[in-house]
């Protein structure tokens, strides 16, 4: 397929779900990866298998595009009852179309760590189909940091069976255009999910965190908190939707998006949505966009802390809660370390 033909298939701003993230406009036909297949690198602990095989058809716009380049996917299998001691690492997702199918079988537990770090002038399109079988537990840690001329769309569709647990933590530093989309489909009762994310954007970077959570069975518990900071001319998009069907009684779901805007030219677009058909549920959403507190900044400066350092400390404290629930202290420290580095560089500490 010619690059120009690929561009024709990319979603654009006249499509409601893509109105703030116009992929078609962002991509030029000279970028690399537009019509090639991705070659990711895996590090998998004993007992976890990674193979290539026939992929399931996709029903998502970017998934269908990936499908037109390969009918194969990388299939990662966590066997029934397995509790992987080490995380599964996925790296080198730096350009091209990549398809992944993950199966965490009954009662199995796994942690996935994904590094989405691309090369200058590239395009990456990642489709992940994840299936959590009954009682499975999956922790996903996703770190994304691309050059400012790279476009990346990563779409995860997660089907969760009864009694499954999902914890997802995203840390995004953006790119020319970055969209990290999560679609969670509850296929049983008693699902627990934490879907948190933080974005830190400077220059003219763009991150879009879109999620769609669909519940059709009772007694599910969802917590979602996305926090971010934008400076310069950066742009952040948050779209979150909870769709609670009639049989999903006693759903307890909460969605929050909180952003700090540190420049007049930065932009934050937020669209939290609840669509509820069950009558005995507790669902809430909240959205705030604000600046750092001037009084707190002055107080810190009066104690001798420089303005840049005061801003960095307050921003770090603001973002930290996103990763509070992580059990893996070292991983949490590593994510906070990356946040500190970004703050140091962006605020000039």
């Amino acid at each position: 397929m010619l690059p120009s033909a690929v561009i024709e298939k990319l979603p654009h701003r006249r499509m409601e779900a893509w109105k703030w993230t116009d992929v078609r406009r962002a991509v030029r036909d000279e970028v690399s990866g537009l019509s090639s297949v991705m070659t990711p690198r895996f590090t998998a602990p004993d007992g976890v298998s990674v193979t290539q095989g026939a992929a399931h058809p996709s029903d998502h716009v970017m998934g269908r595009l990936a499908q037109s380049f390969s009918d194969q996917s990388w299939n990662i299998y966590i066997p029934r009852g397995a509790k992987a001691a080490e995380p599964v690492l996925i790296e080198d997702m730096n350009r091209g179309h990549g398809r992944f199918a993950v199966m965490v079988d009954e009662g199995a537990e796994a942690t996935f760590v994904e590094y989405h770090k691309g090369k200058a002038g590239s395009f990456a399109n990642i489709e992940q189909n994840i299936h959590l079988a009954k009682g499975a537990k999956l922790i996903r840690i996703i770190v994304q940091d691309d050059p400012d001329d790279m476009t990346r769309i990563a779409t995860s569709c997660i089907a969760a069976a009864e009694g499954t647990k999902l914890e997802q933590y995203i840390l995004s530093f953006g790119g020319a255009l970055t969209r990290l989309e999560t679609r969670l489909y509850g296929e049983g009762a008693n699902i627990e999910a934490v879907m948190n994310g933080a974005y830190l954007l400077s220059g003219s970077k763009h991150t879009d965190m879109t999620s769609h959570t669909e519940l059709s069975h009772p007694d599910c518990y969802i917590r979602q908190s996305v926090k971010g900071v934008v400076t310069d001319k950066a742009k952040a998009v948050f779209q979150g939707k909870f769709l609670v069907r009639r049989d999903a009684q006693h759903t307890d779901a909460e969605m929050r998006h909180d952003a700090l805007m540190l420049s007049e030219r930065a932009e934050v677009r937020a669209k939290p949505e609840l669509e509820i058909y069950a009558d005995d549920v507790a669902c809430a959403h909240g959205n705030t966009i604000g600046a750092l507190d001037d009084s707190a900044l002055f107080y810190m400066r009066q104690r001798g802390i420089s303005l840049a350092e005061a801003k960095a400390l307050l921003t770090e404290a603001f973002l930290a809660s996103v990763f509070d629930d992580m059990d893996d202290e070292d991983m949490r420290e590593s994510l906070m370390g990356q946040i500190k580095n970004w703050l140091g560089a962006s605020y000039g500490v």
Partner: peptide, 29 residues
């Protein structure tokens, strides 16, 4: 600047001390 005045030895005990969420007292100090 305020922080340079502090370094020069000036300290203000505030009438209404500010709350600094997320920053532990010891880290702050």
């Amino acid at each position: 600047e305020p922080e340079d005045r502090a370094a020069a030895g000036l300290f203000l005990s505030f009438q209404y001390p500010l709350e600094i969420p997320g920053v532990p007292t010891m880290t702050f100090l």
